[in-house]
Structures are given as C-alpha cells and as structure tokens.
C-alpha cells in the first residue's frame, strides 16, 4: 500500500449557525472541530463514535457535501489535486465523479419508481460519462456483475429486493462513475448479521480489486475491527484517538475508547467482565464542555482536564491519543485481543 493520502484534512472545522440575531448569527454549533487526518490510498479507514459525535458531518465535509468553515481539505490522485475549500464549477463536477457516498438505509436510498438498471445508470447519464445507450448498458452490466446482481435483477423495481440486495444496488450506483474515494455511512447498520457479513466482504473485495479508498463510518466497533486498516474514534467533534486497527484494539489508550470497547456485549455468557459505566450521555455540541470535551463522563478526570483541551500526540507508531494522562493508563484488559 502506498503512503500517499487520497484525502488530507488539516484543522478542518464545520460550524453551523444557531438561529439569527440582529447582527448575524449569534452562536455557532461546532459539529466538526479542528480535525486533521489523512486517508491513505487504497485503505479502509474506520470512523467510530456515538450518535451526535459528528461522524456523518465529517464524512460529508470530505465529500464537499457539508460546508467547510475552517481549515483545508485536499483530494489527491495521480493526475489531479482538488482543494475542497475553494472547489467549484467543472472541478467540483470532476470531484463528484471521484468521490461517492453509500447511505445507511437501503430502503430510503432507492427511488421506488425507477428500475434497478435506471437507478444504477442515473449517475452516468447525469454526469455525461457515457455517450450512447449501448455504452451505458455495458457499463451498468459490468458494475452490476461486480456487485453480484444479474441481468434479470436489472429489470425489476427496488421493492422486489431484500435489504442485502438493495444495499448491493446502492453500492453499484456508487461505483458506476468509477470513484477513487467512497464514504460508507453506517452502510451495514440496518442489515441482519448474515447479510452484514456478505456486504462487508463485498466492500473489501471492491477495495482490493478496484483500489478504492473507503471512509467507513460505523458505531459498531466489532465490524470496524474486522474491516478497517486504520481507525479514528470521534467524540463531540474531536478525534480522541486514531491508530492502526490492531494497535487500537490491542491497547486502547483513551478512556473513551476503552469504555466503548468494554460496552460491547460479549458472546461468552460466562464473561463477567463488568462494562465500564459511561454515565450519562454525550453533551450537546451546541454547548460543549470546556477543556477536554470528555471530562464530564471520564472517570479519571482531574482539574487539568477541565482547563485545557488535550491535543493528539503520538504514543506508539501511528497511534495518536488526545488525553493529558494517557501514559498513566493501561486499558489492555479491555482490549479485544487480550485472549488471543
């Protein structure tokens, strides 16, 4: 795997105005707050966190589908480089081809009035990527075959398909324009376990065979552990920990990551490990706590945590943590691999 990033974000923030005062908006809600990250070419980058942590907003900002308020985001490929902050016009059209989104709910994402063939062909027609109908059909068939949809499926309407098949249709639609970067936003959350495994395997095959980089957004840590190369943990708009998957799951270093891991119900009925209680819920991003945003729920919080916001720093190769006292903790007992 090459080390070049396909997506490079520097101090990215996404702010939304809260209501309007007499002299412009009074306050801002910071959904994504000063995040820097690199997504390497051909990698499967996982983004986890509770609802309300800003995962989806970050994903959309990287697609230029949410406003970039501060900071910079670059998309780089062999032949082009886009600055997403200023991108518009033809360049933006080009970027739309190269970056795609797969949604969570395959029931809501597909128009019930279009055949599967038309759903998959629509991006080609809208972007003018093919000139003749025959060319469009050939491309649709090629992509459909990759997603294990046969010719008969293409003639039908979405209602005739099960959840897993619909998700494969959504994937085909995202792939048809030949993207290099795909944001998969909770793409398996609505599926049954057996179908979830099937869709995950399909995404992995696509990543390997077509060299596509993925940002895989999920709240399910065990799914992320199995599919991603690199994981970032998000809390209230900040990254609190980012590391290669194995490193993160062997030895989580942030108290939040550790608590998330210990809250996963174990398949072993005799596992009596008590889940570390995370009391309360994620605070409102409109009024985030001062200092470390996690201090209101952290069982190790001290005075320093309330005063100063910790920055990400490297504690092991590629393993970055934003916690003042990360050196003092050993959460490896909550790490997933302790028994292996």
């Amino acid at each position: 795997m090459s080390k070049d990033p396909v997506i490079e974000a520097k101090s990215l923030s996404v702010n939304y105005p809260l209501g309007k005062g007499l002299f412009g908006p009074r306050a801002y809600l910071s959904a994504v707050d000063n995040i820097s990250l690199n997504i390497e070419k051909g990698s499967f980058f996982g983004l986890v966190g509770e609802s309300g942590s800003g995962k989806t907003t970050l994903g959309r900002a990287l697609l230029k589908a949410a406003p970039i308020s501060e900071g910079e985001v670059f998309y780089r490929d062999e032949d082009v480089s886009h600055d997403l902050r200023t991108i518009k016009g033809l360049e933006l059209k080009d970027y739309r081809k190269r970056a795609q989104l797969i949604f969570q709910d395959p029931y809501a994402a597909l128009s019930p009035r279009m055949t599967v063939r038309d759903i998959i062909a629509e991006p080609l027609e809208v972007m003018g990527l093919t000139k003749t109908r025959a060319e469009t059909d050939a491309r649709v068939r090629e992509i459909a075959a990759k997603c294990r949809l046969n010719l008969e499926h293409l003639r039908r309407f979405p209602h005739a398909f099960s959840g897993g098949q619909r998700q494969r249709i959504s994937i085909a639609r995202a792939l048809v324009s030949g993207p290099k970067f795909i944001v998969a936003d909770e793409s398996v959350a609505a599926l049954d376990v057996s179908i979830q495994a099937d869709v995950l395997n399909l995404l992995k095959t696509i990543q390997r065979d077509m060299g596509i980089s993925f940002l895989f957004i999920s709240h399910d840590l065990s799914v992320v552990a199995h599919t991603c190369d690199h994981v970032a943990v998000m809390y209230l708009g900040n990254l609190v920990e980012t590391a290669p998957t194995r490193s993160l799951f062997t030895r989580p270093r942030h108290p939040y990551t550790s608590a998330l891991l210990s809250a996963i119900p174990s398949l072993d009925p005799d596992d009596t490990r008590e889940a570390e209680k995370l009391t309360g819920e994620i605070p409102s991003p409109a009024n985030p706590p001062k200092g470390c945003k996690f201090h209101t729920r952290c069982r190790f919080a001290r005075d320093a945590c309330k005063a100063e916001r910790p920055q990400l720093r490297e504690m092991a190769p590629g393993h970055m943590v934003a916690c003042h006292f990360a050196e003092e903790f050993d959460f490896s007992e909550n790490g997933a691999l302790q028994s292996a």
Binding site: G164, S194, I195, Q196, A197, L200, S222, A225, L267
Partner: peptide
Amino acid sequence: LIDALPKLSDLDAPLTPVPGD
C-alpha cells in the same frame, strides 16, 4: 449466525455469511 458475527477475540477470522437470502 454465529459464524457471520464479527468477533473481537479473533480479528483475522473471515466473516462467513449464511449464503443467500
């Protein structure tokens, strides 16, 4: 169903879906 479940104790185990719908 159990084989299809991603398990945290073994990250390299392949996920085996129950074939078909």
